[in-house]
Write a protein that binds this DNA or RNA. Structure first.
Lengths: 213, 213
DNA sequence: CGCTTTCGCTACGCGTCGTAGCGTAATGCG
DNA sequence: CGCATTACGCTACGACGCGTAGCGAAAGCG
């Protein structure tokens, strides 16, 4: 789903290069300036286009940044590493790698913050960013059930609720670690997180040396 | 820790009533307008004070909103409900109740988003908001260890890392559920979350009826 | 009572937003 | 090719919020 202003079919077509330049310039400005100091005039200058061109395609700051940030999450996918634990670690590390980039941190937080007041914006975020992540949860669980690592869910509604829960736990933990605690979600942290997620708090903690199992 | 501009001791003292009115007006404006549309002129008008009075006490929007939001988290505490699961459910429900309020959602997200660029602001958030929450994790674990529900941690460093992990998982999940998924963290959700946190994903899911251990 | 500081008010400079208007460039169609 | 249509770059503009300065008056402290 795009947040763009609809385009007419007749006449001179919009420059695709300008689109790419604007989105790239937005991410660049997001890194250097952050959300609040990012101005559309500056983005236009960086992209080498006129400010009015920008307003012809996006309605405002929100819409532009959503599209610019959503592109970052396109690279998320779920590698099959053979076990549920390894799959989780893999995808969490990918997510963490994206959030390690300043443009993702700044943009994601800004957009989510803005969405608390803007229902349409929240819907765009859900479609552009969140839905892609949630798909991975469903895929990972299906694999784990096929392997026998997770019990099958007889009730579809309960299954859906559980998937939502897992999604909030995984995404929330990584985001909180990265943005609020402001510490990297590195491999060691991901190992500990995966252990808690799979086995629970009651299990004995992992050794610092990196025991796995 | 306060973000206020230091006050002199001689001369006319600052009006305490004005302080309360300003913070309340900030929360009110946060609910109605959200972060980006909140203006200090409007806050001053609502509070019945001059805009200059506002700038005499806080350096800007960030500092003011941090203080206004931090007050909301003062009410967090850890009731002793007799078991680790019940303690977790209790504190998570409290946290969820705070985040159910629009002023908390808007303010917290706005401030966190802004903090991605502002190190000093991040530090203020850590002291004013996050530290209070993290204390509850340590307290809850100490109780659980005293009860024998959790194994004792021989290594202090490992214990600290685990506490940080738990904190990010709990706070992150609730925040993500409330702000990104935009669905309430109600009692049913909290039960499911607590179950996963304590027992892990591999455990059989709870029945919809509300079976408890 | 004087000294100090706060308070309300008005006014101001600055920067950004988002739009209007214009001339020009690029494309599709007959 | 010639025309209609649209995008583009540019300039200018009004509106608005930010943060500050200056003033007279009010409220405490010694």
């Amino acid at each position: 789903m795009q947040s763009r202003i609809p385009v007419s079919r007749a006449g001179r077509p919009r420059s695709a290069a300008a689109d790419a330049a604007i989105l790239a310039a937005t991410r660049e400005a997001l890194v250097e300036l952050g959300w609040s100091k990012l101005t559309l005039s500056d983005v236009a200058l960086r992209a080498g286009v006129a400010k009015t061109t920008l307003y012809r395609r996006w309605a405002g700051k929100n819409e532009l940044v959503v599209d610019a940030v959503a592109e970052l999450f396109d690279e998320l996918w779920l590698p099959d590493r053979g076990s549920l634990a390894a799959d989780i670690e893999g995808v969490v590390l990918q997510f963490a790698a994206i959030l390690a980039r300043a443009e993702a941190r700044n943009g994601l937080m800004a957009v989510v913050a803005e969405s608390t007041r803007d229902e349409a914006l929240r819907e765009r975020i859900r479609c552009s960013i969140v839905a892609r992540q949630k798909r991975l949860v469903l895929e990972g669980r299906a694999r784990a059930q096929a392997r026998g690592e997770l019990p099958a869910e007889p009730d579809a509604e309960v299954a859906a609720r559980t998937a939502d829960l897992i999604f909030d736990v995984v995404a929330g933990a990584v985001v909180h670690r990265t943005l609020v605690s402001a510490e990297p979600a590195d491999e060691e942290w991901v190992r500990g997180f995966t252990r808690v997620l799979l086995l629970g708090l009651a299990s004995r903690p992992a050794e610092p040396g990196g025991e796995r199992g």
